[in-house]
Design a protein around this nucleic acid. Structure first.
Lengths: 354, 354
DNA sequence: TTGTAAGCGTTATCAA
DNA sequence: TTGATAACGCTTACAA
């Protein structure tokens, strides 16, 4: 009943060798006779040895450096939570010798990304976590890190061409599909809906297109294409007047417009427009619990937001990397986080979640 | 830049005492002069000492026993996930010397609960986690454990009369409120909705009443009481014919019935009824991702389910207790888990989540 | 190719 | 009231 824990020493005794030898086979450090290795390996299996990570961390007084390459949240509040999750993970893992060096680039500035990416490479960390929001610019670095044998974990944006150790994020296609369902459930009668991409370079953002595909697929799969009209627009908030004008036109041209689906976290820009123009019959479905979205959810202008677990993305990315680096566990190549549906009535429980 | 970690030894040197003395201060073990204690305490603050939990676990070769008092999932599948979470937590915490002894009682059998509760008490564990689904029967045990100074964490069902170390679960009132919103969003026009309590002894289940209150409050707070009719029923599935008959009557009497809100995880019973009777215009809103609910969500008969994070409840309860027991952290008295909204389109991501 | 011994930060025992 | 010292399980020089 009271199962004593199995130590390296126990294995060593049973195999009639010393702890050092067992350690060497455990870590494949070589320098051990083949037959002895076999013997030890079977005993390890037999006794169901499980390493004690506390002792391991203590014993090997090793330090691991992780580089984090993420957008600067002072330019876009969406990135506050991922950074926060990374901070939290670093705190948790500090006692295992993990240090995270963060490199923050400007979210809509490719040069800034490249510059920071070069700095991380320069650092030669034991691993890298990154939010690869610039597709083209990211690829060469991934190749380089592969050559340098630096493992990397991507999050938020999925890059399928180069195999990363792990991707943490959401399934964009399915999130668009879900958004369509939320729209449809609340609007059983014929009407039109606007799909809006805001403030992103579509050509370099595959995930926005996947959201759009998912959104459209819902209508196709449920035979709703005759019943609903889907309008589509790409907007830039920088030119305020043009932004307003475009929306004015759309609203005017589509008197039966009931809902606007925003594929980025900028739903609040649309909500602000609706509030300013005093339009009540149109509701927004968007992404992410950034402060301004929270405000408009409480106002009832944004009906739903799909949450991308931003904090959890940062947190888990770092953990994934240390599971690989220090705990030598095998990590799953893809971890899709849940698509949380947030509305006014369950909003509060998602603030401060990991 | 390269911040050396602060050790007990460092503090000892600075305070001109030995490590043993610092340790005594750190753990309030007494036997240290008042002025020395003060001095050490300020140095600890100054140097921002953080204990190394790995070393602590290794050093104090202490074993902790936790008793878990939970319903047997073979009688009610809802309890599979909490048990699973407890198992996972035990695995994670094994290396810190934690062992969990589980005592499973029969979900609708008070004697069974009492019997198992006595067994846990007998065990004299270092802490207890429990799902106190029988209100009256639970109270005396909580009092007893208080006297015995055994800390306990409750989950799933909130008991407000006796202060537990921590409660992990959901806000029942708010979940009812949210359910009402989900109903309302999908049914903009006047109609009626049925609130059904299934298979529970209401008088002993405060949380079901809270759900009901929350549900009703939504209509009051949004001035919708004139627009919608709320019917209410308590059902027992045991007498199959009576169960069907009651539902038949309700459906007959309320031709404008569009939705049934089930306050327990037994939504599938209603869904099965609707399926059998071939009724299409009525949808179900319920709780929990038990297999049969999953089936009817995919069928489209259950439109939404509010998820209570069952696995997370078990997982976190055990963690909460060990945070207190072994890591000596202070733990929050209440942790409300998010009210996840699950529908066909985001269902899959919630299976196997912690 | 193998074994030995010191050390990681903390706790616990015991002597002073 | 204090301090020294031996554990805890694992890693890692270094010696054999």
């Amino acid at each position: 009943m009271d199962k004593r824990i199995v130590r390296i020493k126990d294995i060593a005794e049973k195999a009639d060798v010393s702890a050092g030898t067992v350690d060497r086979v455990l870590h494949n450090r070589g320098r051990v006779a083949e037959d002895v290795k076999e013997r030890i390996l079977t005993i390890i299996k037999e006794m169901k040895y499980e390493p004690n990570y506390s002792a391991r961390a203590l014993g090997s007084n090793k330090a691991y450096t992780i580089g984090a390459l993420i957008p600067d949240y002072t330019y876009d509040p969406y990135w506050f939570d991922p950074k926060n999750g990374i901070d939290k993970a670093e705190k948790d893992l500090k006692q295992y010798g993990i240090t995270v060096n963060q490199y923050q680039f400007i979210p809509d500035n490719r040069e800034s990304f490249i510059e920071k990416a070069e700095e991380v490479t320069e650092l030669r960390p034991d691993g890298i976590v990154l939010a690869p929001i610039f597709y083209k610019e990211t690829l060469p670095f991934l190749e380089k890190w592969k050559k340098l044998k630096i493992p990397f974990v991507t999050f938020n944006t999925q890059i399928e061409d180069v195999k990363s150790l792990s991707y943490i994020g959401q399934d964009s296609y399915q999130s668009g599909f879900l958004a369509a369902k939320l729209f449809h459930y609340g609007h059983p009668e014929s009407c039109s809906v606007l799909l809006a991409h805001i403030d992103e370079d579509i050509s370099n953002s595959a995930h926005l297109l996947k959201k759009e595909q998912g959104f459209r697929s819902y209508f196709e799969q449920n035979n709703l294409i005759d019943q609903y009209t889907i309008r589509r627009v790409e907007l830039q908030r920088r030119d305020y007047l043009a932004f307003m004008k475009q929306l004015d036109n759309i609203v005017e041209d589509n008197p039966d417009l009931k809902c606007i689906y925003v594929t980025t976290s900028k739903g609040y820009e649309i909500a602000a427009y609706l509030e300013q123009r005093n339009i009540e019959g149109i509701k927004v479905i968007g992404y992410d619990l950034v402060p301004k979205n929270i405000y408009y959810i409480n106002q009832g202008i944004i009906s739903f937001v799909i949450n991308q677990h931003p904090r959890g993305q940062g947190y888990r990315s770092v953990h994934q990397l240390s599971d690989h680096l220090v705990f030598k566990k095998k990590v799953p190549p893809i971890k899709y986080l849940p698509l949380d549906i947030i509305t006014k009535e369950n909003l509060s429980y998602y603030l401060n979640e990991v």
